[in-house]
């Protein structure tokens, strides 16, 4: 076991971790932040996406010990200061960007990274970016709409019939 210190959603935490303990296990099992999901555990599905030092990372494919000194943000840390949904979360609700909701935390974290890098993405850019996030309800059209809406763009023509 090694001691690891990191900042998670603005709070400093210090815990003992196993060498083979994944960041997602640390977040879910030690910190009980269960909003970060484990879908495939093979780094394909993206349900475990979090931000580490501001960058999108699959928490199932990084060890907790490697986050020593890092700033980690999970889905629990992205709402507005008053607790209301942030613009991306609200857009997912408004545009029915989820059905079962399992992939949603990863989708929201992934979308936030995209909009930080590319504030006005095209529909094609959104779809390309989401290559690493799988939705088993096949709800991609509305997810893409929600992300376009969150970027302040008109969504009337997105995924038009």
């Amino acid at each position: 076991m090694t001691e690891v210190t990191m900042t998670v959603n603005g709070k400093s935490v210090r815990r003992a971790v196993r060498g083979n303990e994944l960041l997602v296990e640390f977040l879910r099992e030690q910190l009980r932040l269960t909003g970060t999901h484990v879908g495939c555990d093979t780094s394909q599905c993206g349900a475990c996406c979090v931000h580490v030092n501001g960058e999108l990372v699959k928490a199932c494919s990084m060890f907790a010990a490697e986050a020593e000194g890092a700033e980690v943000t999970t889905i629990e840390g992205v709402a507005n200061a008053d607790g209301s949904l942030n613009v991306i979360q609200q857009a997912f609700q408004d545009h029915h960007g989820l059905q079962c909701g399992f992939c949603t935390p990863g989708m929201v974290m992934s979308a936030a990274s995209l909009l930080k890098e590319n504030p006005k993405p095209t529909e094609a850019e959104v779809r390309h970016w989401l290559q690493g996030n799988i939705c088993r309800c096949t709800g991609y059209h509305n997810i893409v709409k929600a992300i376009m809406a969150a970027s302040g763009q008109d969504v009337a023509t997105v995924a038009a019939e």
């Binding site: 996406c49 960058e55 699959k58 990084m62 690493g132």
Partner: peptide
């Protein structure tokens, strides 16, 4: 290569 999250690691 891979996807955005994979490219960050």
């Amino acid at each position: 290569i891979g996807d955005p999250a994979v490219r960050n690691r």
